[in-house]
Design a protein around this nucleic acid. Structure first.
Lengths: 136, 136
DNA sequence: AATTACCCTATCAATCTAATAGAGTAAACA
DNA sequence: TGTTTACTCTATTAGATTGATAGGGTAATT
C-alpha cells in the first residue's frame, strides 16, 4: 500500500508545480485544496524541503515553493524520499541494499528473482516520469 | 515492503514445485529447509490450500503438495492471495477497486495517474511469470 | 513591534505483522 | 482397533508503523 505520506506529498508537489508564478503557497491553502490534515502535511513538506525539492519562506506572504523545474523532478527521487526504497525486499534494493538474514543464497532465491524483475519494472516507470508528466 | 507471509509463501511454493515426484511434503521439512517459523508457515500453507494452489494429506506420510503444474501457476494469482492487491492504491485496483474518500476526481489526480502506470508495470511482470519461471 | 507562518517535539489510538501456544481432528498403518 | 502422525483451528501477544493531533518556539516580513 502507498502510504498517506507519499500520497499527500505527491499531491502537494503537483499542486505547487501547477502554480503559474513561483510565489510561495501557504500550507493551509494546500491542505484545504487537497483535503489533507494540515499538521501532517507540515511534516511532509518539511521533509521535502530538507531533501531539496522545496524551498520555504517565513513571515507574511510566506509558504512553500518548488525549487526545480517540474520537468527536472524525477519520480525515482520523490518516491525514495517519501515512500522509501523502491524495491520490495532489501536484497534487490539499489539504494538500500541489505542481505536477507534468512536467505542462504540470493542467486538461487525465487523471491529475489521475482522481486528483481518487479523492481526493474517500477524503476522504469519512475525514471520515465517527472512531476511535469503528472500534471499534463 | 513485501510481507514475510508472501516471502515465505513464495519460498514454500517453489520448494514444492521443485519436488521431483508429487509426494506430499511435510510442513516441518519446508520450514527447516527455508528457515521459516513452522507455525507461521502452517497458516500460510493453509491459506494457499484454501485458495486452490495446494492440496494436503493428513496422517503418516502426509503433507502439502502442489495441485497444478508450476507452468500454470501465475504470479498474479499467487501475489493477490499472499500479498493482497497488486495496485498500491485502491482507486487503480482491478480486483479490489475502491474510490478514494478524499479525492474529488480520479481523472485529474496525479497519484491516480502515476499509480496506474505502476500497477500496469507490475501486472506485466506478474502475468508473464509462473512458478516454473522462478525455479529455472 | 506585531503578525504571520514555518519549524520542532511529543504524544496517541489504531492497525498490522510476525510469531507462539495449545488444543483438536482426520487419515494412515500396524 | 488403536496409536501415531501431521494437518487444522483459535487465541494471544509483543512490537512496529501509521496517521493524526497538540502545543509551543522561532524567524522573517510588514
Amino acid at each position: 500500500m502507498l502510504s498517506k505520506k507519499t500520497k499527500y506529498g505527491l499531491k502537494a508537489l503537483t499542486y505547487l508545480a501547477a502554480q503559474k508564478d513561483k510565489q510561495p503557497v501557504q500550507i493551509s491553502e494546500i491542505a484545504k485544496a487537497e483535503n489533507i490534515s494540515q499538521k501532517f502535511l507540515e511534516s511532509i513538506l518539511l521533509s521535502l524541503r530538507k531533501s531539496g525539492f522545496l524551498g520555504s519562506k517565513k513571515g507574511k506572504g510566506g509558504g512553500y515553493y518548488l525549487i526545480k523545474d517540474p520537468k527536472e523532478v524525477l519520480m525515482t527521487d520523490v518516491m525514495r524520499i517519501l515512500e522509501g526504497p523502491i524495491a520490495m525486499v532489501p536484497c534487490v534494493s539499489l539504494n538500500f541494499y541489505e542481505k536477507c538474514a534468512d536467505c542462504p543464497d540470493e542467486a538461487t532465491c525465487s523471491v529475489n528473482k521475482l522481486m528483481l524483475m518487479v523492481r526493474d519494472a517500477n524503476l522504469e516507470v519512475y525514471r520515465n516520469n517527472t512531476l511535469a508528466d503528472l500534471i499534463a
